[in-house]
Design a protein around this nucleic acid. Structure first.
Length: 603
RNA sequence: GGAGCUGUCGUCUAGUGGUUUAGGACACAUGCCUGUCACGCAUGAGAUCGCGGGUUCGAAUCCCGUCAGCUCCGCCA
């Protein structure tokens, strides 16, 4: 069930000098009582001698009635009211006559006959109708964010977000966690995303960096004996934006001492179960499903699979190992693989649809996409069928259990590209065929490779971060075959979104140094960037690990939304601009001089 | 860095080379209305079609460029 504002409001607490109650609170239990209410004019209906105003606050809408016979002054004022005027009224709650009850309104059983009114503020005509938010272009809503935020939807989203952070604090506090803040003006590090830099006025030519995450600080707090800490931490990464990525975002960031990965996962499962139960009333099954990285890539083509539908990727490499089909031959010679998706309802896919899927595969770097349909003669109708042997087709039909009307989509390329392309197409098919079931499907992905190969720089790079502990089972490969080493890292995935990730950390200085070496960090570089950290490892540090949840994404999923801008009060556009404040913007010459910066002329 | 989609009164949109003086709905203004509830009725105001070039007798419409928004690839330890 969706988040309900009324169930999460302490009405008594909102009593003030101006008002006795809230609008959405009004029901038949108030009949006969005099109340004072404050709010905005949602709508005015002027019948000449009788005026209705729908008064709105964050809890809902209540109908006010203005009758000149009751109070001519209030009636006269009501005539002048327009949408979004701010009112304070005092009146009596009356039961509506049966024929005037509005079933669509929570407060529709009653209305307030206004005896006194004060217009606290007037308003210009709003730039868009609040109840038409869904239709209004996002650009307009972001420009007038203060109006957008008045809408039911945004009120609900941000109140849900608050509820999630409140629940998080409650839960973690009860488990012995301390909330400790770490610096926002932090240190730039060479690894990972681009840093946002902040020049230092007091230290010419030097820069702080905004933290990409509080990683090293929270580990350091473990070294200091705080045992377990968390933080609702703002993080900054100067990378391109997406529907689920903003340059500044919020993590529920935590770290624990004397634990193993299972302890951390159990803690997160408890936290998420509490959050789901208390915010949207969903009971989550714990423990969550777990899957190795390898299995996830093989089966779903991604490390963040959406388990609300099946449609597994299947491997055809061995089936085609002796094929005469040149494309497959070449791929297999280069240690690539042949994988496919198979589904029913081939008739739903026009030639145009299939061409689009081919384009999609190409956009993910695949050489192409081979498609084929099983027709009524159980033949494989495909542009490439003439290149395939009869027995190969027969074997494929059997392995994939194809029947009339089956559609097969094959990608042959290197492992990563094949998975990537088919993973994306799998999601596309599920959407088109309406296979995505309602509900929430969390799972853990674990057993990640410790490193991946960076093609561009021709070196190893950490899959998670350089402080991730190798798994004991594979650590012996570190020197000779580092790409075979698995890490003690884990991601939590929900409905196809990565909502968090963490790891057990390295607590052995020798291993930490070895990893830095493997990553091609030179000694001076280590000293300069992680000097304090390496040094601290020498002073007795406990085994520790942690995790960070993406709060924005979590709330987005809880609210059944499709972009995180809708759960952020003041988000930025795809070009990282704030449409409300028009940041970023230029600064004065004087400001620049103070921070020892001169600007290059535009080329 | 790349691909795709979008841009017309305040808002949402119709319009795909010529009866377009750019139409409608909602919002807005004025007036009427005692039971409406995204009230109703009447009248009115409101857009040189994101911006700049080009093609054409003629451009909101076609072409090129550019800007902005969105989705995606790359990127995001």
């Amino acid at each position: 069930m969706p988040f309900d504002i009324s169930k999460n409001t302490n009405y008594e607490a909102h009593k003030t000098a101006h008002r006795t109650n809230l609008c959405g609170q009004m029901d038949t239990s108030f009949v006969g009582r005099e109340v004072s209410l404050c709010g905005w004019v949602n709508n005015r209906r002027d019948h000449g001698k009788l005026i209705f105003i729908d008064l709105r606050d964050f809890t809902g809408i209540v109908q006010l009635v203005f009758d000149p016979a009751l109070n001519s002054e209030a009636y006269r004022l009501a005539k002048t009211c327009r949408a979004e005027y701010v009112l304070k009224i005092t009146g009596t709650v009356n039961k509506r006559s049966p024929e005037t009850i509005n079933q669509d309104l929570k407060t529709g059983q009653i209305e307030v006959s206004v005896e006194a009114m004060q217009v606290l503020n007037s308003a210009k005509t709003p730039p868009f109708l609040l109840h038409e938010r869904e239709k209004v272009e996002e650009m307009t809503r972001l420009r007038y964010r203060y109006m957008d935020l008045r809408t039911d939807q945004m009120q609900k989203n941000l109140r849900l977000r608050h509820h999630v952070t409140a629940q998080t604090r409650n839960y973690l506090n009860s488990k012995g966690f301390l909330e400790i803040e770490t610096p926002i003006l932090a240190k730039s590090t060479p690894e990972g995303a681009r840093d946002f830099l902040v020049p230092s006025r007091l230290n010419p030519k030097k820069f702080y960096a905004l933290p990409q995450s509080p990683q090293l600080f929270k580990q350091t707090l473990m070294f200091s004996g705080f045992d377990r800490v968390y933080q609702i931490a703002r993080c900054f990464r100067d990378e391109d934006l997406r529907a689920d990525r903003q340059p500044e975002f919020t993590q529920i960031d935590m770290e624990m001492t004397f634990v193993n990965a299972d302890d951390i996962m159990a803690t997160i499962e408890g936290l998420l179960a509490a959050v789901f139960k208390n915010s949207i009333g969903i009971d989550m099954q714990t423990p969550f499903e777990k899957m190795t990285w390898q299995q996830s890539m093989e089966t779903y083509g991604t490390d963040k699979p959406d388990l609300r539908f099946g449609l597994p990727i299947q491997d055809l490499s061995s089936l085609f190992k002796d094929t005469g089909f040149k494309i497959f031959q070449k791929v297999l010679q280069k240690n690539g693989c042949i994988k496919c998706l198979a589904c029913d309802s081939a008739h739903q896919f026009s030639r145009k649809d299939l061409d689009q899927l081919v384009e999609m595969a190409k956009s993910y770097g695949a050489g192409g996409l081979i498609w084929g349909k099983i027709d009524s003669n159980r033949d494989f109708q495909s542009p490439v069928s003439k290149f395939l042997g009869k027995n190969e087709i027969q074997a494929m039909v059997e392995q994939l259990r194809l029947k009339e009307g089956s559609l097969v989509l094959i990608v042959a390329d290197n492992f990563k590209t094949t998975c990537n392309a088919l993973g994306a197409i799998r999601k596309q098919l599920a959407q088109k065929l309406n296979l995505i079931r309602e509900g929430f499907k969390p799972l853990w992905i674990y057993d990640f490779p410790l490193f991946e190969w960076d093609q561009k720089n021709n070196c190893l790079s950490p899959m998670h971060h350089p402080f991730t502990s190798p798994s004991p089972e594979t650590i012996s490969w570190l020197q000779d075959a580092p790409l075979k080493v698995k890490s003690q890292a884990y991601d939590i995935v929900l409905n196809g979104e990565e909502i968090g990730g963490g790891s057990m950390r390295i607590d052995d200085i020798a291993i930490q140094k070895q990893i830095f070496k493997l990553l091609n960090f030179t000694d001076p570089m280590i000293e300069q960037n992680f000097g304090f950290f390496i040094k601290s490892l020498e002073y007795g540090i406990p085994p520790h690990g942690g995790i960070a949840l993406g709060l924005d994404r979590l709330v987005m999923i809880l609210g059944s939304l499709t972009n995180i801008r809708d759960v952020i009060a003041f988000p930025k556009t795809q070009s990282a601009v704030c449409m409300l404040t028009d940041s970023p913007s230029g600064v004065t010459q004087r400001q620049l001089e103070e921070i020892h910066i001169s600007l290059k002329e535009e080329e």
